[in-house]
Design a protein around this nucleic acid. Structure first.
Lengths: 211, 211
DNA sequence: TAGATTGTTAATCGATTAACAATC
DNA sequence: TAGATTGTTAATCGATTAACAATC
């Protein structure tokens, strides 16, 4: 087994997005050069990335778009659908529950939880906000595989503990807070304010840059 | 001028977040070792990262937390506040307009735009959704510096063109779509579905991983 | 002073890219 | 076949880390 660079994972997501667009536009064949141009990378990088998982193309021809899409979906694990719950029915939780791109990629929001009595019982789309106390039982009954943390930083760790305790192995953490989980639990962090800071870092021409 | 690795920018955002927590908890001094542990990196990495911008610590002592925070804020350009507009008053635009973490970091949402007559005129917090037709004039009048794209993929490029034409130089793109802009315009991409795919990539033990 | 921790160098490690034989 | 493009190797490039003199 070849060791796969950490950077490959992110690019696989982009290949996936790109290939979905290509197949739905009816394109049957694509070269590493075309894919690379669309992503702003080198064609050798595309070929190298794919080569970690197999040989999916035809020399002299390129890649069958539908076939490559299927392979990338299997590599990413998005050839099946996933059951997702959201913890936190605030603005962000609300937006995520209604975000159609997730469902289009096979991530189905099957439940949303909060601890605010004002919110519990209210509807978001066709979901009813549930009491966090019912979390564990719900997860078991519905075979939930992924939990999304969409609560303020102050309660993020507490929520993480509840998630881990429920047996869920995959967490997406939207709170601006590092959370600690036992080995074997996989966390992806998305702090929305980080890209804003990256942007101002690049926009700012300050004394440090010219040092 | 030293060349700054691309990876440093992301970590600076994390240092910033961490230092804000430390100062508000009253901690006056911090070592590279402590910072590193909090971020799950090596202390030599912390020191190396900071060294691109100056020498902010005291040998044998560590870093004055308040001073280092101030320096990091100046490096990132978040020692001032920024005027931000959102284009797209759907779920995501709505959530971002109300997301307090942005304001806490100096990113003030000063306007939100849409092209849907149903939405135009409605209120989000104390903002009124404005017609995208008024965008250019609004940007000039209010010295807007950053625009957030929160529209569906299908209209992302169109919206990007309007933003560029308005003179704005910094864009955050939440749509799952690569957009093209002229040189000199800085874009940060956040496709929310990407971390979900990264997660399932890691959760999935498939035939490719054992190959 | 002795102990601690920085700032920086050099070594290591990992990721990208060019180049090209293989082959459609 | 001739032209095109893959898959893979080796070279290059860039980022991380260990190590340590400087110095608080």
């Amino acid at each position: 087994m070849n060791k796969i660079p950490k950077t490959v994972s992110r690019r696989l997501g982009l290949y996936h997005r790109c290939l979905k667009n290509l197949t739905s536009s009816g394109k049957r064949n694509v070269s590493s050069k075309e894919l690379a141009e669309k992503l702003g990378i080198k064609s050798s990088q595309v070929r190298k990335d794919l080569s970690y998982f197999g040989a999916f193309g035809k020399r002299g021809v390129g890649y069958d778009t539908n076939y490559l899409l299927e392979m990338v979906e299997r590599i990413l694990g998005v050839n099946k659908s996933w059951s997702v719950v959201i913890i936190g029915a605030g603005n962000l939780g609300h937006a995520l529950a209604n975000y159609d791109v997730l469902e289009k990629n096979g991530f189905y929001i099957v439940g949303i939880f909060d601890n605010d009595p004002e919110k519990i019982g209210q509807k978001i789309g066709n979901l009813t906000i549930k009491d966090i106390k019912e979390f564990r039982e719900f997860v078991k009954k519905n075979n939930v595989e992924i939990a999304v943390i969409a609560v303020p930083a102050t309660s993020a760790q507490e929520v993480a503990d509840i998630i881990v305790e429920s047996g869920i192995k995959g967490i997406i953490n939207f709170s601006p807070m590092t959370i600690n989980v036992p080995k074997g639990i996989i966390i992806e962090e998305i702090d929305i304010s980080i890209p804003f800071k990256n942007l101002t870092f690049k926009l700012t021409g300050n004394e440090f840059r010219s040092a």
